[in-house]
Simulated scan of single mutants.
Amino acid sequence: MKRIAFAFALLGTVLAVLAQYAIINDWTLFRLFHTLGFIGYILIISAAASLSLLFIHQLSRDEKMRIRNKSFE
């Protein structure tokens, strides 16, 4: 799951940078690259959200185990 999120973040970054490069250099297919850049931003945000949820889930799992082990002592 982490690998997929990192791959989406990397792909999104590449698309966003390519879109900015197309804007700066006034390419003829500007609209296409602008759309790809928007898709890139969505991929970056989705990957960040996925990694954040994974991190929060891991923290809550560790806390549940700590509480469970503490009650048996």
Rank of each mutant, 00 (worst) to 15 (best):
S50E: 09
R68L: 14
R66I: 11
I56H: 03
F33V: 01
M65C: 05
G40I: 05
M65K: 15
L11G: 08
K2D: 15
N25R: 09
I39Q: 09
R3V: 05
I45E: 06
A7C: 02
L11E: 03
R31C: 00
K2Y: 13
A7N: 02
A48K: 03
S46K: 02
A22C: 03
V17R: 01
N69W: 02
L29Y: 01
K70Q: 15
A5I: 02
K64N: 13
D62Q: 13
E73F: 07
L59T: 10
A47L: 05
F8L: 15
S46E: 04
L32S: 04
L18G: 01
A49T: 12
E63T: 09
R68T: 13
A5P: 03
R31G: 00
G40Y: 05
A49W: 09
W27D: 01
T28W: 02
N69Q: 10
I56T: 03
A22Q: 05
I56E: 08
N25C: 01
Q20F: 07
S71A: 15
K70N: 14
A48F: 08
A22N: 02
L59E: 13
S50W: 14
L54G: 14
L36A: 07
R66S: 10
N69H: 06
K70C: 08
F30H: 09
S60Q: 11
A22I: 02
A19E: 04
Q58Y: 07
A9E: 08
L53T: 10
L36H: 04
L10T: 14
L59Q: 14
